[in-house]
């Protein structure tokens, strides 16, 4: 449809080249008063030059961020504004036209192209389909094997790395600077981020082991079945890695006894086994069972009984 209509529009191969006289209305500037526009553009260019020079001077003097930004930003803007104004107000504004030709080729060209592709393709595979199959198999095998160095070499297989932390039976709780935590360190309502002793100088260990220790009034704790001994003297230790997307559950709100993850606003009830009460987190924060040793240091009774952090396919 558009093919036939457009053929009429198509200009001859050797159309006369358009010539215009200087006073053709299409060649007139847009400005009512070109002299005034000229002056305005000159002022803009001068401001631009001053701005750029100003930047150079500031830089020469040792630099100052805001002045640098103001001078060069302003300078470039004025030069650009002047040039755009030159284009808009002083150059021929037309309107000018160019004709548009249909994208589709004439029918004979289309047929020739299609048959060239199809017929020559048939020549290639005529009675030699098995060669094509073999070539395809070769490419496919290469495609798969090529991903080995590209992907497999990048990192280790997960194995059980996601299931474990560095917490072990008897691990002493220490703060970030390696100081052990004693049963007298926190008041009721206090909190502290703790790590297993010996693992505070590695960012990789911190990422998984981080544990938030809070001290609650022992009487207010809702004891979970099987966790009767896990919170000596009101000390409760939970994994600090959010079960939603892995952010540190960093905000302990003493008034409501809740832990808030600042990334996506999941809320966990400290007194009720860190069960999620709000937000997108699906699971309670795993709890680390504690005991107080003979010297009054807090230690882990056992490692976490489940993987810490967000969910993944292999988690059962």
């Amino acid at each position: 449809m558009e093919g036939s209509a457009a053929v009429e529009d198509r200009p001859g191969e050797h159309e006369a080249l358009p010539i215009a006289s200087f006073d053709d209305p299409h060649l007139q500037p847009y400005a009512r008063d070109p002299k005034r526009a000229e002056r305005l553009i000159a002022v803009l260019f001068v401001l631009g030059i001053l701005g750029v020079i100003g930047y150079g001077a500031v830089f020469w003097q040792g630099g100052q961020t805001q002045l640098e930004g103001g001078f060069l930003g302003g300078g470039l803007f004025f030069i650009g504004f002047g040039l755009s104004a030159w284009g808009k107000y002083l150059l021929p504004q037309g309107p000018f036209v160019e004709s548009r030709h249909p994208m589709s080729s004439p029918e004979p060209d289309r047929e020739a192209m299609a048959s060239a592709v199809v017929d020559r393709g048939k020549m290639v595979f005529r009675r030699r389909g098995f060669l094509g199959t073999l070539l395809g198999a070769g490419m496919g095998v290469f495609g798969i094997v090529a991903t080995f160095p590209l992907i497999r070499s990048l990192g280790p297989k997960p194995g059980n790395a996601l299931d474990t932390t560095n917490w072990k039976k008897g691990s002493r709780l220490v703060t970030m600077d390696g100081r052990p935590v004693s049963v007298h360190d926190l008041e009721v309502g206090g909190s502290l981020t703790v790590f297993p002793e010996g693992y505070t100088d590695s960012i990789r260990a911190e990422a998984t082991d981080q544990t938030i220790l809070v001290r609650a009034a022992a009487s207010s704790i809702v004891t979970q079945p099987g966790r009767e001994t896990w919170g000596p003297a009101g000390y409760l230790a939970y994994s600090k890695v959010c079960t939603h997307a892995g952010c540190p559950v960093g905000l302990y709100m003493e008034q409501t006894q809740q832990l808030l993850c600042p990334c996506h606003q999941s809320l966990f009830d400290v007194l009720d086994g860190a069960a999620p009460v709000f937000g997108p987190a699906p699971r309670p924060l795993p709890q680390l069972p504690l005991y107080v040793d003979a010297h009054g240091w807090l230690r882990a009774q056992a490692p976490y009984d489940q993987p810490v952090g967000p969910g993944f396919w292999e988690r059962s």
Binding site: P18, F22, G94, F96
Partner: peptide
């Protein structure tokens, strides 16, 4: 609209 002139006299 007019075609873009090639020569301007």
């Amino acid at each position: 609209p007019a075609p873009v002139p090639v020569r301007i006299e």
